[in-house]
Design a protein around this nucleic acid. Structure first.
Length: 725
DNA sequence: CAACTACAAATTTTT
DNA sequence: TTTGTAGTTG
């Protein structure tokens, strides 16, 4: 390892400065990971015990990447990797809480809930309280959970969150808050922790137990936090708490890549860092080693229009390379075919796993997945269904969870659902009886149902066995196999194989709790995926963060998809979408193709609606991005006709460049023209913004659906029609 | 009264 | 593709 040769001066400074607080502002592709890894190596070669180094990140991907690369470089093998403490904030919180569970207030341990579990409990709370019954517009439980979690992460109350970003749900604020209280109480009664609880409980435990905190601070002599721009307020406080007495804290981040504000992440954390830790050394990494200049020019142009930004000049020495291009298929369906054709074309130059297709939301790749299946191009998708989310895996794990914690409601309801004659209601009754020790109810159930008796006996046998994950799992799968065949007659063998995979995972664990929590916090499927070669990668932009490919395609770059429909009304949200696009484009090393279909399928109307290219593309200076439209004559990418570059007057160009903070929903949209004429389509309202007319009513009124305010009845005079083009 | 069945509706991003 | 509701059946 040669620090002189392998690192540039800024990187070297970051890697070799080991004492005192440090903030590294690392642009996209600026060798951030390399710098951190070299710093680790430097510390270890200085005689620092790897276990005394704590490495925290927000996402699993980043944690994994970091720890494997550290392991490779330190040439210590897998055991060496394990000896550097670290992982995601959540995983670290879990490990710490588990070790000191008594201090955390859980003498008998606790169970970690994943999203589905939390939703189950929330649904239960909603039913118990009788809230929202028969009300079709009451938000579904996933939305309720999202709101409650957002309120928690942003440390606001539900009303504030609603009034800021879901105006139409404001009347439900009280109900949602009540459901939230019930949910919180339920978790407390049954020693259950959700994702957010892990962080807040760790914070509480550390503040309440100064001795424990002191011990941890002594133990972790060096703390490094990666992707610091994605941390939220608790995570920043945890960083502060855990900071060793020596003050050796390093935070690494890039404000331009902050894409988790929706869950409370705040760039303020980066800005405040030097104040929080006096004497902070700030290092900027500005040389980009990943992309060619044409790609960097585009990404710089995208960032150019950002409302607020921090000065950072990314530069590269890779001057040459193909120009990024914008393709305009007729529709999102032909887009899938175009993208597949593009992949085929690229595959002559790059191995398949060096090609990635990125999109805003998981569902946007469905058409492409079908197309790739048809043409026989293998792919792997990131951000799809998690291994542990599969129903059969959750079923089996539920039995194991009940071995550790009989107060686990989601587990009971899954397990009880297999007993004939028991549905949600009876399951709840039984759960309550178990909780309160009501033998009478249980006895009655047992007398009535042979299957119920068998289940209880089975669970008792499990609980009597030694708590070895592998052995317990074997018993459970044995008992579950017939149920599996019955429940999934069609793809029973595939799921069976999945359970065998689970057995292999279990074999690696000596401790049941650790295994259960890891399945909730980590995703064992993904490391396996990572090593899979010769598959095109399909990924959400969020999941693609920190990764890079030789060729990148970004699809569905039209307004309402990317930027997401939900982000159109609030400027801050729109800015985040812009950074998201920036992250997407900066993943590309050499080749970058953007797709903006001219029409997109709309579920509501069942037809196609014309679509505008993403606002972020429309506001680029003309000529930045060559554009080619699909031709009627043929279906392959080669059939694109080159469009003449748009010839806007030079003055318009300049005004766009110097006017970054234009009201987002007005920028680039066709000028409003006329009042509704009875034709359906999009219109604009002074207060509610852009909306879709869904019905014409009497008295010159119409019903308009506004993406962020819900449907409203409005006098047509107050609306302006938007051109269909 | 609870479970099962059929159907309409809605869908961001992560831990 | 999942989730909630209304109707039907045991």
């Amino acid at each position: 390892m040669d620090f002189e040769r392998d690192l540039n001066p800024a990187q070297r400074q970051a890697a070799l400065t080991t004492e005192g607080p440090m903030l590294v502002i690392a642009g996209a592709g600026s060798g951030k990971t390399r710098t951190i890894v070299y710093r680790l190596a430097h510390l270890v070669s200085d005689g620092v015990d790897p276990a005394a180094i704590l490495l925290l990140t927000f996402t699993r991907k980043a944690a994994q990447e970091m720890l494997t690369r550290a392991g490779m470089l330190l040439a210590m093998g897998p055991s060496g990797v394990a000896s550097v403490s670290g992982g995601t904030f959540h995983a670290f919180a879990f490990a710490t809480l588990r070790r000191y569970h008594a201090a955390a207030g859980f003498p008998d341990g606790f169970t970690v809930l994943d999203q589905a579990d939390s939703e189950d409990i929330l649904g239960q709370a909603k039913d118990t309280l009788g809230i929202g019954k028969g009300d079709r517009s009451f938000p579904r439980k996933s939305a309720v959970l999202g709101l409650l979690s957002k309120a928690r992460n942003k440390e606001l109350d539900v009303g504030d969150v609603l009034s800021r970003e879901a105006f139409h749900l404001l009347p439900y604020a009280g109900d949602i808050a009540r459901i939230g209280e019930r949910y919180t109480a339920f978790k407390a009664e049954n020693r259950l922790l959700d994702y957010d609880d892990l962080l807040f409980t760790l914070e509480r435990t550390l503040t309440e137990h100064p001795d424990l905190l002191d011990y941890l601070r002594q133990h972790h002599r060096y703390v490094m936090v990666d992707e610091y721009q994605d941390t939220n307020r608790v995570q920043a406080r945890l960083t502060r708490l855990l900071a060793p007495t020596s003050g050796n804290v390093m935070a690494v981040g890039d404000d331009a890549q902050s894409i988790y504000a929706f869950r409370g992440a705040t760039v303020d954390n980066i800005l405040d860092f030097p104040e929080l830790f006096p004497g902070t050394l700030v290092v900027k990494l500005e040389q980009n080693y990943r992309s060619t200049q044409p790609i960097l020019s585009l990404t710089n142009a995208i960032l150019q229009n950002a409302g607020r930004k921090y000065d950072k000049k990314l530069f590269t020495t890779r001057e040459d390379g193909p120009q990024p291009e914008l393709l305009r298929p007729f529709s999102d369906l032909t887009q899938a075919a175009m993208a597949a054709a593009k992949i085929r074309e690229l595959s002559s130059r790059y191995p398949l796993h060096e090609i990635a297709v990125l999109f805003r939301a998981g569902y946007q790749s469905y058409a492409l997945e079908v197309e790739l299946g048809k043409t026989g191009i293998p792919f792997q998708k990131f951000g799809g269904l998690k291994f542990s989310d599969a129903a059969h895996v959750k079923d089996v794990l539920s039995y194991l969870r009940l071995v550790r914690n009989t107060a686990d409601f989601p587990a009971w309801s899954r397990v009880l659902a297999f007993v004939p004659g028991i549905g949600p209601k009876t399951a709840t009754k039984i759960f309550n009886a178990i909780q309160s020790g009501d033998r009478a109810v249980l006895g009655k159930m047992a007398a009535k149902s042979q299957e119920f008796r068998a289940l209880i006996e089975f669970l008792d046998t499990l609980r009597a066995l030694p708590p070895s994950p592998a052995q317990l799992l074997e018993r459970v799968i044995e008992a579950y196999a017939p149920l599996l065949a019955e429940k999934y007659p069609e793809d029973y063998p595939r799921r069976q194989a999945g359970l065998e995979q689970l057995q292999q995972i279990a074999a690696a664990y000596a401790d049941l709790d650790a295994m259960l929590a890891d399945l909730v916090l980590e995703n064992p499927d993904e490391d396996r995926k990572k090593t899979r070669e010769d598959h095109v990668v399909l990924s959400t932009v969020h999941s693609a963060k920190g990764l890079e490919w030789s060729a990148v395609l970004v699809i569905d770059l039209v307004d309402e998809r990317f930027p997401s429909r939900h982000a159109l009304s609030r400027p801050e949200d729109l800015e985040e979408e812009r950074r998201l696009l920036y992250v997407a484009c900066t993943r590309a090393r050499e080749h970058l193709t953007l797709f903006a279909p001219e029409t997109i399928y709309q579920r509501q109307t069942g037809g196609c609606a014309p679509a505008l290219p993403s606002i972020f593309l429309r506001e680029l200076p003309p000529g930045t991005l060559p554009e080619r439209r699909e031709r009627l004559g043929g279906g392959s990418a080669a059939a694109f006709a080159a469009c003449p570059p748009p010839s806007a007057p030079a003055t318009a160009v300049r005004s766009r460049l110097t006017r970054p903070a234009e009201a987002p929903h007005l920028t680039g949209a066709p000028a409003p023209r006329k009042a509704p004429t009875g034709k359906m389509g999009y219109c604009r309202h002074k207060i509610f913004g852009r909306g879709k007319i869904i019905a014409m009513l009497d008295d010159g009124k119409c019903r308009v659906n506004f993406p962020d305010f819900g449907p409203k009845v409005i006098l047509a005079d107050y609306l302006e029609m938007e051109d269909a083009s």
